[in-house]
Design a protein around this nucleic acid. Structure first.
Lengths: 220, 220
DNA sequence: AACTATTTTTAGACAAGGCTAAAAATTGTT
DNA sequence: AACAATTTTTAGCCTTGTCTAAAAATAGTT
């Protein structure tokens, strides 16, 4: 069994490996964990001793198979609890992160599996992120960023990259909801803003919005 | 906010104060917490500094009002989660304790209140223990031990004193369920065993059973 | 290739929570 | 009241996870 801190490091490395496939640097991990580089080095040695990461001094870190498994298990629990909070306890999608951050460390395989069953084996959390199954398999999806759609192209909102309260509230305010169709009406090259159509309304969104919303392009 | 360890100490003191109303001794607390007396002394100093307990060296400890409040909040969460596990996730009453022991430390007032609402404001947990309301008030009940019933007297099973897996499984095996009527047919003075009637069957139970099952005597 | 800037690691310290062994206080017994 | 037994506290040390400051390694630039 892993400590709370170990689990958080594994999770952070898992997320950062998507961006830094060549290896996660000590500094990047320190920033993600909101701690100091020296603390990270200490922890990496411990994780390495437990064969949860592949770590060579100065060379960055990768998860081992064991570490990856452990990280996915934590992510699975996090996302299932988020679904629970939104679907069953009337939380809104911008309130659930911190609580799920606590609940993800509860240790009981049966609890996780029963929760999954109770929720009807959901495939995605409230932010559109995929929930791995009990074996740790993620469903892959052909999502792309709204900013990658070309003029005239349409898609369905399927997830957010930034799940901060601020961004989620912005989406709520503008009635942009996962599952809804969205269309790029016009692209302004000067500032990379987009004129989009949602709910029969047109709305101009800046680059910082369009690069944080995932869409599944509509077949055409 | 209190640490996991602090919350566990407060909870333990709360439970022990029922038995040791003159003050909870260091040794009693050490046994309850499965730790050493010296560790208890250390923690009592910390809790005392935070005004959570009233502690004078060598004189035992009492909860302060703040400490009592904190303890009740943890107990409320523990019991609500137990209801959730049994009612919603198909756990049996002998499996829930360890998981609730983890869940009781999750910090979110809204979570507790929404969970309470979701469960329909339950008054008792699966072992018959009362669940304090959001203000910390317990419902008092006139329960007594099965062993305190006299020959011929009847009652309703309302709770267990020992909630170990072993005892709960014994009750399950003999189909003794909370809410069911129970009657003392005969009392054997020699070993304090009782012949009881439940579900139309007669069953002999030893003293260690009858002193761990709470009943509400039937008006007569 | 050498020098600088940046990143990473090491060394030493600290707080929380726990332990052992020894000292001090309390309780019990004659 | 005095000695013995028990309980409680103190003192010092350990582990986990963190920190700061300094040293070492790597990367970047001329």
């Amino acid at each position: 069994m892993f400590s709370l801190s170990e689990e958080n490091y594994l999770k952070a490395i898992f997320h950062l490996e998507k961006k830094y496939s060549a290896g996660v640097s000590t500094n990047a991990l320190a920033e993600e964990m909101e701690t100091k580089a020296s603390s990270v080095t200490d922890m990496l040695k411990k994780l390495s001793d437990k064969n949860l990461v592949k770590y060579r001094k100065y060379q960055g870190v990768h998860l081992s198979e064991n570490g990856k498994h452990a990280a996915i298990e934590v992510i699975r629990k996090h996302r299932l609890w988020e679904v629970f909070l939104v679907e069953k306890l009337n939380f809104s999608w911008d309130e659930v992160h911190d609580i799920a951050e606590q609940l993800e460390h509860i240790k009981s395989e049966k609890l996780t599996d029963e929760l999954d069953k109770f929720l009807g084996h959901p495939k995605r959390d409230p932010h559109g992120d995929p929930i791995p199954d009990a074996a740790g398999n993620f469903r892959i999806s052909n999502k792309m960023l709204l900013s990658d759609l070309s003029e005239g192209q349409s898609g369905i909102c399927v997830g957010v990259k930034d799940s901060s309260t601020e961004f989620l509230r912005y989406l709520d305010k503008n009635e942009i909801t996962l599952g809804k169709p969205i269309k790029v009406v016009q692209r302004e090259e000067y500032d990379d803003s987009l004129l989009i159509q949602v709910n029969e309304n047109e709305l101009r969104v800046s680059k910082s919005i369009s690069t944080n919303l995932f869409v599944k392009p509509t077949e055409s």
